[in-house]
Structures are given as C-alpha cells and as structure tokens.
Design a protein around this nucleic acid. Structure first.
Lengths: 172, 172
DNA sequence: CCGGATATGACAAGGTATTGCTATTTCTAG
DNA sequence: CTAGAAATAGCAATACCTTGTCATATCCGG
C-alpha cells in the first residue's frame, strides 16, 4: 500500500505501483477525513461515523418510516455489531429512536427523533463548511469525476467482500 | 456524509450533494478496502495497516537506514500513539526492528528485518492479486486519474488537519 | 553551560470496524 | 402445524485511530 517499487517490466510495475499509490492515498485520505471531519462536528459531540448514520436517516425518502437495521447495514456497508454500537450512542443522545416494526415484529425501524432532526440541521452548517474547505480546489467536473471513480471502486470492493470467503451475501 | 438532500437552489445543492456523495463513497471504500485487503493478507496474520507500514519500510530508498518514528508519522499521516502500537506488533513478530539512531540518541530507526523482508516479498503476491481484482474494471488512465484526484484530496485534508485547531504542525 | 525544544515511550480514554458465536423472537414455505 | 430461516440483540476478542498528558533522555542555540 505505501509507495514501494519492484524491479519488473515497466508496464506491470506501473500498474502495480499506481494501484499501490492509489490505495495508500485512499488510506491516508480516509484517516484524514475522519480526523478533520470529526473536528467539524465535535461541538455537537458527534463523529463522522455518526454523521453518516444521521445523514442516511435524514433523507427525505426515509422520513418517519425510518430504516431497518438491515437496510442501514446494506446502505452504509457496515457490520451489524459496528452499526449497533453507533446506534446505541445516537439513541442515548436522543437523536434516533428504535421502534418495533409492526409489519415484521423481528425488525426495528430506526428513525430520527425531532431533537435529532434539529441537531442534524445545525450540524449541516458545519458539514457544509467542511465540504467547502476540503474541496475548495476542485471544479464541479472534478468532483463528479472523483465521485464516479470512487463509486466504481466501492462497487468492486463490495463485490469482492461478498465473494472472497466463498460466501454469497445478498444485500437488502 | 450519507446521501441526503436539502431544498436549495440547484447549483448549491448539486455541489453539496456531490460532496456528500463523494465523502460517503470515501467512507465506504475505505472500510471495504480494510475488510477485503485484510483478508488478502490474513494468511500472514497481517492487516492493511501493517501492510502500509511494511510497504513504507520496504522502499528501496529506505533500506537498512530505516526511518525514524517521526518520518513514518509524516509519511503515513498517522499519530505517534497509533503508529507505535502497530510497530509494537510488527516488532513482536520479528518483522521490524527498532534501533537507536546514532546521530540522534533520542530517535529510533525503524527498519525491516530479514524475516520481515522475506515475509513482505511473499505478501506482495497476495497484495498484487488484491490490486488486480479490485481494479479489474479500471483502465490505466482511470487509475492514474483516481490516484491524482485522491492525492489532491489528501493534500487538502492534510492542510486542514494542521490548521483547524490553530496549530501549525510542520511535517518532518 | 543551561534552558527550552525535541523524539519517543507510556498511560488513559473514547470511538470505530471486523470476525465469531449464542440467544430469542418472529416469519414463512411446505 | 412445524422446521428452518431470518432479524436483531448481546457477548467476546482483536486491531486500528484520535486526543490529552506525563516522563525521560537528548539535542542545540544563545
């Protein structure tokens, strides 16, 4: 992952080398995103991961219906245990609520509380600033391009995450 | 971070929305990279983070000189405490060694052991497969483009990470 | 020479993320 | 009706990542 070189035919080394550099940048960028992003929402006592969850729930099409744990897992591409802990914290703060799903009693609907919606709205100001600052040097075209490329990378990794142990796990 | 929408003028919403999607993909891709990447090196009992450190040390220009903790921190963009624990684990496995720097007794030179070099060489085969599989759908041009865009994103976030608390921390 | 700065280690705390496994309730297809 | 599957919670373990703080040894400029 970190920049490294091998003595190989130029074409092969270039692709390996490039992949290496790319994933190293992904690693660095992600850590920095969490570091700086968490600072941006620290006045709310929140974190980037909580923001991801809140953001998922704040989508208009989710509304009062909320999302099941399974749906959140499939959307955020996290494991149940990890999500569960994050949900616990958000619930403790009164920002989300878990309600039994009346259509399927095994399931829980997760939704924003009114307090959570209000807090989210306030956080969005800081989040917007974070986006502006971190992406100040990017044109709209570049943003779109980076988004699309990352989306494809995510797709590829997601496919691999389901295959690699010979387990086929279907999303929600 | 997660896809969310706000009712705003189209141009503003587009940039915010796009930024939002972008960072959400960064979040997802990073988690998946660690998940799948760690599987790729799990037969060595290693992780993506250890691979990043090993890779940094395996660069030809590092060689037997090694790197100081401070240099590694500046290269990997991690904190000292986090790096220290990873180094502890790598040292325990006999893959790296810490030696007092004779030019500056306060400092430690970190380098690969012979066992570490051998193990790294073996890991590279799995790492190469990981790169091939995860990036199978990308042309060389796309790889280069993604690398460059991520590099710029990393630069922007890195700058912010140094400014945001009013602290100016200079790299090594 | 010596005060201030620096490099690293150590300790603490909190949060994130994965894997593995168990338990309980509920659903559903045969 | 019932066996098997599914949804979620809970427990454990391991590894990573940040912030804050303290301690010790060493460096270096005035």
């Amino acid at each position: 992952m970190a920049d490294t070189r091998r003595t190989q035919p130029a074409n092969v080394a270039s692709r390996f080398d490039l992949a290496n550099r790319l994933f190293f940048r992904l690693y660095q960028s992600s850590n920095l995103m969490h570091k700086v992003g968490t600072r941006a929402v620290s006045s709310f006592g929140s974190t980037t991961q909580q923001w991801a969850v809140l953001g998922a729930l704040a989508r208009p099409r989710v509304g009062r219906t909320g999302m099941s744990v399974k749906e959140l897992i499939g959307f955020l591409l996290l494991t149940r245990q990890n999500l569960s802990i994050v949900l616990d914290r958000l619930e403790t703060r009164g920002w989300i609520e878990r309600a039994q799903d009346l259509q399927d009693r095994r399931s829980r609907r997760i939704r924003l509380t009114e307090a959570g919606e209000a807090e989210w709205a306030r956080m969005l100001v800081e989040i917007g600033s974070f986006y502006d600052s971190s992406l100040a040097d990017f044109t709209a075209e570049e943003l779109l391009l980076l988004y699309r490329l990352l989306d494809r990378l995510k797709d590829g990794l997601e496919t691999m995450s389901r295959e690699e142990n010979g387990r086929e796990e279907e999303p929600a």
